[in-house]
Simulated assay, not measured.
Amino acid sequence: MVSYRFLNPYTFQSGVTVSNRVVVPPMTESMSFSDGAVTTDELHYFRIHSRGVGMYITPVANVNALGKGFEGELSVADDHCIPDLARVAQQIHANGTKAVLQIFSAGRMTNSAILRGQQPVSASAVAALRPDAETPRALTDAEVRATIADFGAATRRAIKAGFDGVELHGANTYLLQQFFSPHSNRRTDDWGGTLEKRMAFPLAVIAAAQAAIHEDAQNPFLLGYRFSPEEIEKPGIRIEDTLQLLAKLDTLNLDYLHMSMGNAWRTSLNNHNDPEPLLNKVLVVTHQTPLISVGGIETPEQADKVMAAGATFVALGRENLREPNWVQKVSNHTETTIRYKLAVTDLEELGIPESFFRYLANMERHGANIGFEPSLAKASEDEALNVIFN
Rank of each mutant, 00 (worst) to 15 (best):
V2R: 15
V2T: 11
Y4D: 05
R21L: 02
M31I: 15
S50P: 02
S50G: 02
M55N: 03
V60G: 15
A61T: 05
L66R: 08
F70D: 09
E73Y: 04
Q91W: 06
N95S: 08
G96T: 04
Q102E: 13
A106R: 01
N111C: 03
I114M: 03
R116W: 02
P120Q: 03
A123D: 14
V126G: 05
A127N: 07
A133M: 05
A133Q: 07
R137A: 00
A142E: 10
V144N: 00
A161Q: 03
G162F: 01
D164F: 01
V166N: 12
N172I: 07
Q177H: 14
F180W: 09
S181Q: 07
K197Q: 12
A204G: 13
I206P: 13
A217Y: 08
Q218C: 14
L222G: 06
Y225M: 10
E230A: 06
I239G: 10
T242M: 08
L246S: 05
L257W: 11
G262V: 09
R266I: 04
H272A: 14
L279H: 15
V284W: 09
G295I: 01
P300I: 12
K305Q: 09
P324H: 07
V327W: 03
S331P: 05
E335C: 09
E335K: 13
E349K: 07
L350M: 11
E354A: 15
F356A: 11
F357C: 11
A361D: 15
M363A: 15
M363D: 14
M363P: 04
N369V: 05
F372A: 11
S375H: 13
L376Y: 07
E381H: 09
